[in-house]
């Protein structure tokens, strides 16, 4: 079953003093996320990730198109009982304690009164805030606020969870815990849609990712498919005193360490590189294909923007 579906969802803001100048925040977006998937939404700052999430949460009104969550239109308030949302750099009512805040959100989400206390205590324990349950949020560190944010997003046991930059502001341990939590949610069959620009997290966690840049979807698919679509490279290692002429013309990245030379060349130039080494009578130590990372795919998609519009297609 489809968990999240956007159909030509778009947003244009009217800016300027007379509000007549359009600023496109999101071009028509068509995206489908299946139930139980962990979906990464990647893009640089200002790409349109947060706008998309706000549109899905009903915080921003779309200029065009529509979106459905679990088959229901996002305008229907009832569907939100099935949604959990962690905004970017969350800020909460700082006059409340962590326990009071979760109680308030549980009430708003319609959690049954008899289950409320048990769920809140379990959640505080799960995010490591049991000892700080009665401390006002104004005394919380950024990392603790992020934990409260995660707790409020999953407190009511939603089916679809949206996380906007969930690792932002966390130390390495905190990031590890969030990753574990997302893994756990996946094992429970939840759908997790999270935006990030930390590609290693996306690569490690996501079933599928989408890359967005300048409000436009640049690519979407399984991580393995996307990385294999990037033109491959090979690494050659040999011993020598200098990089032979002709390597730079092949677009090689060369590094020398003592007598050892390491060159990474595009896969299509492999034969030409070997020919140069044979001609120079140099002995090849190894030749290894270089696995493309999500980062390379991401850089390729995002850097298309730097080229003229015609060249980008």
């Amino acid at each position: 079953m489809v968990a999240i579906e956007t159909i030509n969802l778009e947003k244009t803001y009217a800016v300027g003093f007379w509000r007549k100048k359009p600023r496109v925040a999101l071009r028509p977006l068509n995206l489908t996320v299946e139930e139980g998937e962990v979906f990464g939404f990647l893009g640089p700052n200002g790409a349109g990730k947060t706008t998309t999430l706000k549109l899905l949460m009903g915080l921003v009104i779309p200029t065009g198109g529509t979106a459905r969550i679990l088959g229901k239109n996002i305008d229907e308030a009832e569907i939100k009982a099935q949604i959990g949302f962690l905004p970017e750099q969350p800020y909460f009512y700082d006059y409340l304690t962590a326990k009071e805040l979760l109680e308030y959100y549980a009430q708003l989400s319609g959690v049954e009164p008899k289950e409320r206390t048990r769920k809140i205590e379990a959640m505080l324990e799960r995010v490591g805030l049991k000892d700080a349950a009665r401390v006002q949020l104004r005394k919380f560190s950024k990392g603790m606020l992020q934990r409260v944010g995660l707790a409020q997003a999953i407190l009511h046991d939603p089916k679809v969870i949206f996380l906007d930059e969930p690792m932002s502001g966390l130390d390495p341990m905190g990031r590890r815990e969030v990753r574990d939590l997302i893994e756990e949610l996946k094992q429970q069959g939840k759908t997790v849609f999270f935006s990030t620009h930390i590609l290693s997290d996306a690569e490690a966690l996501c079933d599928r990712v989408a890359v967005i840049h300048q409000g436009e979807l640049r690519g979407v698919g399984h991580v393995a498919e996307l990385t294999s679509s990037v033109a491959g490279k090979v690494e050659l290692i040999w011993n020598g005193s200098a990089v032979p002429d002709g390597f730079s013309a092949l677009g090689a990245e060369c590094h020398m360490s003592g007598e050892t030379i390491r060159a990474v060349v595009p896969e299509v130039q492999q034969e030409a590189a070997l020919e140069i080494l044979r001609r120079e009578r140099l002995r090849l130590n190894s030749l290894t294909p270089v696995r493309s990372s999500l980062e390379e795919y991401y850089v390729q998609k995002v850097s298309l923007a730097a080229k003229p519009a015609g060249a980008a297609r």
Binding site: K54, M57, G58, L59, A77, E78, I79, K80, A81, I83, F85, P87, P90, Y91, F92, Y93, Y105, L108, S109, G110, G149, Q152, F162
Partner: peptide, 14 residues
């Protein structure tokens, strides 16, 4: 301004 509204309106609150 403080964005506390986001976590309220993303719930079943009209």
């Amino acid at each position: 301004e403080k964005r506390t509204l986001y976590t309220v309106l993303s719930r079943p609150v009209r």
